[in-house]
Amino acid sequence: MTVESIQNVTVIGAGTMGHGIAEITAMAGYSVTLQDVDSDALAEGYRRIEWSLDKLAENGVIESVDTVAGRIDTETETASAVKNADVVIEAVSEDLELKRTIFEDIDGHASTDAILASNTSSLSVSKIASEISRPERAVGLHFFNPPVKMDLVEVIYGAKTSDQTVDRALSFVNSLDKKPIEVQKDVFGFVVNNILHGFIDEPAWMVSRGEATIPEADAAMVHCRNYPMGPFELADLSGIDIAYDVRQAGDIPIPPVMQERVDAGEYGRKAGVGYYDYENGDGPMYEQGDGVTFDTLHVEACMANKAAELLEQDVTTVEDIDTGMQLGAGFPVGICERADEIGLGTIVQKLSTFHEKYGESRYEPAEYLVQLVEEGHAGVAAGAGFYEYDTE
């Protein structure tokens, strides 16, 4: 069911995310314009939409490919693409200056009532919208890849985003049959990627320090803790170069093992080699017993600490953190729920040990986490932690 005040949606950028967002928006009944300055990229994006719709029709997800595809027009000119749009979603690559330029262009041609949304996965919505005339209309809509399959969308406030804009954006996301979580402050990485950095980076630091091997880390997180992929396997799939660029943009320390792969051009699956060899090898190579000595608590403690920092800063809620990690990252349970199961006192002790040993700020226990423990809210066994539990 579409939102009554929204009829026409324009998606800027016909790449993987852009054409995916255009597809699900058309599936929800909206009239969609897919815009890209590159006519070849635009044609390829539309072809991929048709291919995907054919597969969905074969599986009975949609009744008519022609009906859905017929709701999508293509356009190379920004002005004509956005002039009648109620929502404009920018979905180009993670380049702040490019996104800022596109937002300024959109701002000059779109209706004054239109929502201007960025599909950024980590960059500041406030900075992207810093030069437009109506920043109160700007919002982040972070869809996850691939949009057709992934149910989560992060809805992010910029510094000047109005509550009315967020309310409309939340209604729009719900109308796409997606689950929104609200990110109330414009922090780098938002919710999911902030916590996911700990899942990917901490094992990389451990390998860089000689404390573990790549197969040990992946085997432990998959077979011992039930994550859908190991951290190195995931990095290879999503692109080590992309992870590297994001961390540079956020001024996040880069583990040496990641730096080595980028320097060698070994970006993962798309390059044929990354942490694993996909050309001359069999890709991820780890067995169930490989990870028995790997310190999984180290990784989960760091993720829980980041969750506590987000709560301490009033970025979001416990429930939205756990929903985000399950729907956006495929975690078996939310990280706050898992931390309560482990015990928050155990997590604080682990973090304190590493903070004393390495002196790195990311290991310093969040004040909120320490406060919970001091108040006796140490997790499931105590009857309360991030959540409250019925112990009767």
Rank of each mutant, 00 (worst) to 15 (best):
P215Q: 12
L234D: 01
V273G: 07
Y276I: 10
I12Y: 07
A169T: 04
T161C: 14
G281S: 08
G230D: 04
T161S: 10
E50Y: 12
L98W: 03
D236P: 08
E211T: 13
K99N: 08
A114C: 10
A14E: 01
T317W: 07
G334R: 00
F143H: 03
A264F: 09
S238K: 13
E131Q: 12
G328I: 09
A301N: 09
E266S: 11
Q184M: 13
E300N: 09
A381R: 04
K127L: 13
P135N: 01
E309Y: 09
F199G: 11
V191L: 10
E266K: 15
G328A: 12
G379C: 03
A79N: 12
G272Q: 00
A212R: 01
E356A: 14
Q164G: 08
T78K: 15
A304R: 01
L176H: 05
K160V: 12
R48S: 06
T25C: 01
V61Q: 10
G158F: 10
E216R: 05
S121Q: 08
F172D: 01
K99L: 09
V246Y: 04
I21H: 00
P215V: 14
R47T: 11
N8L: 00
Y157G: 07
H298E: 15
D277R: 03
G60Y: 10
V246K: 05
K306F: 08
R247S: 04
D107N: 02
D66F: 04
G272N: 00
L327I: 13
D113W: 05
V153G: 03
E94Q: 02
D390S: 07
D186P: 03
P215H: 15
P256D: 11
D86A: 09
T2L: 03
P256F: 02
G334K: 05
V222K: 07
D54G: 03
R247T: 00
G15Y: 12
S118R: 04
E211I: 08
S133K: 15
G272V: 02
T16G: 01
Q184N: 14
D241K: 02
E266M: 12
R47A: 14
P231T: 11
V9K: 01
S31E: 08
G283T: 08
S130F: 06
H223Q: 10
T76V: 11
V333K: 14
Y286D: 04
I342C: 02
R261L: 15
I156V: 15
V87G: 07
S80C: 06
N145I: 02
S64I: 07
G376T: 07
V187T: 15
T120C: 09
R71V: 03
K99W: 03
M150D: 10
V187C: 06
D277S: 06
E287M: 07
L297I: 04
S31T: 12
G379I: 02
G283M: 10
V333H: 09
A249V: 15
H355N: 13
A235R: 02
Y244A: 00
D282I: 12
